[in-house]
Design a protein around this nucleic acid. Structure first.
Lengths: 235, 235
DNA sequence: CGAGGGTTTGAAGTGCATCAAATAGTGTGG
DNA sequence: CCACACTATTTGATGCACTTCAAACCCTCG
């Protein structure tokens, strides 16, 4: 994976990207490895090369709230730049992963000097904020089966018409936490979704012979109409 | 109110602020006035001079989800710049309000040319994103009375030790919608909060003789410790 | 004083959480 | 290749929080 192809770093100057490349380190993480904790002082930001990283926060008694789960090509920890150099969440590898670490300092300097890059990063941030807004809306307006359906719809290849196949990217329990529900609820809600929309489920593999049913069931309780993938997909 | 003192426009160049001033218009809005709708093409961004503006989205059947409620000094519609010049939500005056409209074009040009300003805006955006994250966390980890308590805590003057007074800024029904609950739930949850933390409620006026109880009750179910006001207050 | 919106209260229903236990699935060492 | 251990997932039973629908109450303002 080449750093230059990352969506976040698009429009970065040559000098910047070269400097980044030189200071990049690849960390091999075991499942369960904590990369940093909420409110740790931040020196690096990270990019997922492979595997999955969970961003989360927790209360004193250990209850945790999952902020996001990031896969290949996604960046995290970069917002510490704007928040007193402190990470706003904790990060943990939820399976064996490779992570690229990069100095925040370089990012900061590039932002300060390359306006085109800043504009790009702002676009990126606005996009992320919009996604968060949609997440809140979904929890407001959709029930558990609908939220799962929406999650599934965003895993379908866009050009797949008619039948479509989906492989869940990670544990059902993790998906549940990302959608803000308990594993048990996820399991039951998925069955209900099957019943309502005729999807076929075999373990982590799902087939849709009639995506329209799913779309109708889920998207009618959302302010965006179906191909909202552009909105939700890319980070 | 002078445009130059707005947190969003801090670090804007003189030329920019002057140009903005010249193109500023003050709109007087009746309660219920819709300023724009979700997905309208955006030409202006806005600043609340007085009153309250509700940002929201709705599904086809009219159910709505409240994104935010903005008061004096807050800006809205500015993110359209980064989202294909389309507003990502609808905006409505929830009471008689004065709104300043400003051309997005000027904002865009300033962002493209004034790097210091861009940095400031990015800080602003990061802050907003963090707030949204916290909102999601609150809905994950706190129950209705706790969310209300947290809302109240953010209305207290920081230097008020011992007893403190709060006046609810707008309708209870609106607060309820902002916190993602029904008016009936809000009413009952507020009573429960009273019972649990000993706050005194008279209509929209609330007194806390012992804020610690409230803090203990609410903040123990959140990943941030009490004076999280810095985080939540300023927009 | 009366109209109308905001707020509270009551009764009933629903969806999700929780706790407990069974089952399926996966990787390990023998 | 099997048996075991461990984890992920499902299923069952129950409880609680919030919603919904209905009606009463309250407050403000013409």
């Amino acid at each position: 994976m080449d750093i230059k192809n990352l969506s976040l770093l698009k429009d970065g100057s040559e000098t910047f990207l070269t400097a980044l490349g030189k200071q990049a380190h690849v960390l091999k993480c075991e499942k369960g490895k904590i990369l940093f904790l909420h409110e740790d002082t931040a020196e690096y930001f990270y990019i997922v090369k492979s595997g999955w990283i969970k961003l989360f926060r927790e209360t004193l008694d250990g209850t945790q709230s999952v902020n996001d789960i990031l896969g290949k090509g996604n960046a995290f920890g970069e917002t510490a730049l704007f928040e007193n150099n402190v990470y706003p969440y904790s990060a943990e590898a939820v399976e064996a992963s490779e992570i690229i670490s990069l100095p925040l300092k370089l990012l900061k300097e590039e932002l300060e000097h390359n306006n085109k890059f800043s504009m790009h990063v702002m676009r990126h941030m606005a996009h992320q904020r919009h996604q968060k807004d949609m997440e809140i809306e979904h929890r407001d307006l959709q029930n558990a089966p609908q939220r799962i359906g929406c999650f599934l719809l965003n895993l379908i290849d866009r050009d797949a018409h008619g039948a479509a196949k989906i492989d869940l990217p990670y544990d059902k329990t993790l998906i549940a936490s990302k959608l803000g529900m308990q594993p048990e609820t996820f399991s039951r809600a998925l069955s209900k979704l099957k019943e309502k929309t005729g999807i076929h489920i075999k373990g982590s593999h799902i087939e849709l012979y009639d995506p329209k049913q799913l779309i109708e069931y889920c998207c009618s309780h959302c302010s965006s109409e179906f191909p909202c993938k552009d909105l939700l997909a890319q980070k």
